[in-house]
């Protein structure tokens, strides 16, 4: 039997469009995160919760020979300059008129400083910034392979796969949890001031059926989300819509605003990799 190889032709324009959309949304996420850091930069003062004086005690190497150099960047005012430059880099990434060289520098700086800021202190961070780290690092790698469509395709697949994995794992981790299956987790998260909401809690506290339905819908939605890569077009679109609404709801009721941009930033990569929505799916 003759062996035939199918040569996949990569549509460069479609690939570039997907990467530009990832850049724009991820850049917006990085901008919001950095502006929030700047708005609360009092927290970096000596004796405050994110002061360099205590943060540097986490690792021995931070108080060794590098201490003075690190203090220039990680203590005030250096840390404010770092975040100010992040805002500019994020704006560059969002600017469709910016040159590729400028965007490469911006993505590299944002990815590098994302690692640096979280090495400085993991406190106050959350999963949205992990997503940003993944997207920004992968965008940087994609720019190093500007003339290699296969490499850039791998970058888009990596962002899409990590995003789908995150929904899938979150769903499975809830499925094995009795408190998620019976809905008490939903009610009890909403009772906290940290991640909850007064009105949502008052609506749920005496309605266990509603809480259970919400818990089970969350499990189902998160577990089904990875099917976006293989589902037919209407289902794939619905899954993306449900995902986006889920993050919008979490922003309103749980105060998780940064998750919206970080996760939506992965959606163009998911659309590109989806069998029904991307990679020339409309062409027959």
């Amino acid at each position: 039997m003759a062996l035939t190889r199918t040569r996949t032709v990569i549509d460069r324009a479609e690939q570039d469009r997907a990467l530009r959309r990832v850049e724009a949304l991820t850049g917006l996420g990085a901008a919001v995160s950095s502006l929030e850091y700047l708005a609360s930069s009092k927290d970096f003062d000596r004796g405050e919760l994110l002061s360099w004086d205590t943060a540097r005690t986490r690792y021995r190497w931070m108080t060794g020979r590098l201490e003075k150099a690190l203090g220039t960047v990680f203590d005030k005012p250096g840390v404010q300059v770092l975040f100010g430059a992040r805002v500019l880099a994020a704006a560059t990434l969002m600017n469709s008129a910016a040159t590729e060289r400028a965007k490469t520098a911006a993505a590299t700086y944002l990815a590098g400083t994302n690692f640096a800021v979280h090495a400085r202190s993991p406190y106050g961070s959350d999963g949205s910034e992990t997503v940003l780290t993944i997207s920004l690092t992968t965008l940087t790698l994609s720019k190093l392979f500007a003339n290699d469509p296969k490499a850039r395709q791998a970058c888009l697949w990596f962002i899409a796969a990590q995003s789908c994995l995150s929904y899938g794992i979150a769903g499975v981790a809830k499925l094995i949890s009795p408190v998620w299956r019976d809905g008490s987790a939903v009610r009890d998260i909403f009772r906290t001031r940290m991640f909850g909401h007064r009105l949502a809690f008052s609506a749920l506290r005496d309605r266990p059926r509603v809480a259970r339905a919400l818990g089970q819908a969350t499990i189902a939605g998160e577990m089904l989300f990875p099917l976006v890569l293989v589902a037919p077009k209407p289902v794939a679109r619905a899954l993306l819509g449900v995902g986006a609404s889920f993050h919008a709801g979490n922003a309103v009721f749980m105060g998780l605003n940064r998750f919206v941009w970080a996760f939506l930033g992965t959606y163009p990569a998911i659309v590109y990799c989806s069998r029904a929505l991307g990679r020339g799916s409309g062409r027959g």
Binding site: A170, A173, W180
Partner: peptide, 10 residues
Amino acid sequence: WRFFAPNPGI
């Protein structure tokens, strides 16, 4: 990636 699971902070 487990986000609030299996045992969320309550």
